[in-house]
Design a protein around this nucleic acid. Sequence first.
DNA 1: CGCGAGGATATTTTT
DNA 2: TATCCTCGCG
Length: 755
Amino acid sequence: MSIYDTLNEKQKEAVLCTEGPLLILAGAGSGKTRVLTHRVAYLIEEKNVNPWNILAITFTNKAAGEMRDRVDRLVSFGAEGVWVSTFHAMCVRILRRYAHLIGYDNNFTIYDTDDQKTLMKDVCKRLNVDTKMFKERMLLSEISHAKNELVSVNQYKQEAGGNFAQRKIGEVYEEYERELIANNAMDFDDLLLCCVDLFQTQPDVLDYYQERFRYIMVDEYQDTNSVQFELIRLLSMKYRNLCVVGDDDQSIYKFRGANIRNILDFESVFEDATVIKLEQNYRSTSHILNAANAVIRNNKGRKDKTLWTDNGEGDAIEFRQFDNAYDEADFVVEDIKRAVRRGEGAYSDHAVLYRTNAQSRMFEEKCIAANLPYKVVGGVNFYSRREIKDVLAYLKTIDNGKDDLAVRRIINVPKRGIGATTINRVQEYAIDHEESFYQVLTHAKDVPGIGRGVTKLAAFADLIEEFKHLSENLSLLELAKRVLDETGYIESLQAEGLEEAESRIENVDELLSKVAAFEEACEDNDEPATLSRFLEEVALVADIDSLEENSDYVILMTLHAAKGLEFPHVYLVGMEDGLFPSYMTITADDPEEVEEERRLCYVGITRAKEKLTITCARRRMVRGETQFNKLSRFVKEIPGELLRGLRPSVSVNNTAGGISPFGSTAPFESGSSFSQKKRKPYANPYVQNRQTKQFGTPKTGGLSYQVGDRVRHVKFGVGTVTQIVSGGRDYEVTVNFDTAGTKKMFAAFAKLEKV
DNA sequence: CGCGAGGATATTTTT
DNA sequence: TATCCTCGCG
């Protein structure tokens, strides 16, 4: 019996079909990852394909890692030769070798969304663009869309014709691109675009990769955009062994440029394509699956398919409506607690899925109050936190002196008395003389009109130069520590004296451990741990990547983040018209927008294996005003007999006729959603708990040391306490350290120990 | 040049 | 509501 006997007929067919273009339409939970991994194994073991010739592209690093593990387990030998990667990571890897052929240095920097915004601000200022009329966000998204559709600056300007706004945007696009190149930087879209550009202009490079990747597989194909399509089209043109796997019903990234036509039109673009549908679901109970089918059926423009399962009916879907969001969160948290106490599952078997990140807070608060371990996926990305970006900006500056954004970010962080005027002078000089910002700093004395600023600038440049030299001999971790030490960054955080500082410092520490982990990983793989590689890895991580498998947490995340995951018990919360589907999509009179939301709902429902709970609230605070929402139209699309709802005085099960079971009894349902200006501030009863979380260390009570005592600090070593000032919640302690000098710090998080 | 106050603004989703 | 940005003062 071979490993392929465990597959069903359709799956097997997909695995055995190795030559030519292949489209696998894989419904939710139909075992597509199994198919992909077995297909890789089959290619290597049965078809004697060199692993080196196989490329598998996934959407997230996490998915890539999983695929890698599973292939490793399946294939006895040689699996590490397979290239498993995300689109972005793949492009970076290629561009690090060849970017010089298309006008960049090979050590280009990658700009994230924040960087893009900063750059865009600059551009607008320079071009005198009125940012009241053209919002940076809007400009960026317009440019991003253009890039995703492979529209170049020239093309864009041409198409703009006489349209004033379009022409203006064209100018911005042009300047933005110029700036990126000047900074030797690429944004996310550029990574893909430049790669296409490289392939189009360098036939020999393209040929090299075509020869290399004779078998290409793309996961989550429904979320690819036009550039990505072009990329794989080019790569697969020679051998035509392209296998794409996706589910048009799970296409949820249109806003990011995903082009659903890529999957819908696959057969017409690749005329000889084989199409295989995987419709047997192995994940969910039939109740859950039927609900999902019933919802998605309301979408037009989709490939016809119906998921079915051998699994039993399972529990009915539970539906609850609450008065407000507090009650809703309360219920969910208590429900999870109860289930875990009864031994019905671990915390990590429970996931709470919501539409917007803002909704996570209430669940967090309730989890803290109820003492449930939880993990929020998403929200503010670790790497976009201010302190992390600051430290990274130092590293970027050391790595790539052309990255003006990074230099300007840190030139006065911590405060060095270098102000806006000085920075502008340098900037002007840099533009006039076509030098990079940092380059100018190294000979600041030539810049007219900065007076005493020269000394400060020179000192800064010297500091960076020193780091650059150090970086040649030190490990990354040592370098990073050195940067923190010599710049006094940590102290400057402490000096801010905010409660936040504690968590900021923790974050910096965590960054250091990530540096260390990176170095270890590199060592294991026999790769040099270069600064560039670290920065690139860091630039390409997604929130979902950080989800650890074997820790026991309740998982809180957005529906988008949940794609590709599964949980025994899923809570779909905030199911209200106006929230989900969001107000924006309801009012936009493009029915496709609601369809995308419906697909999102479909994704949410199909995450559940055994149990699904749907909740909503009649009243909820959004942006400081109270909204009254009616039940989500998506819930109404679920047949009543699949739902078990417990609401005062009405049993949902006895409403017949296929119409919504929630006809007219509940308040606020029959009218349209409306909102009301808040009259009085709503007292949040959980504020207390939030604070409890932030102040793990008690603020009151005596300190274990006093003036004159000898104490130990984790970083600064041993010293003598010279002063203790009571400052509101906390004590400000001044310590004269034997080696590190005198420092002021807050008792609550300095973690001083008496010695 | 640094800091604080007050006003504007945002919330759909993110590699 | 929470954050971000601008402006004016010391």
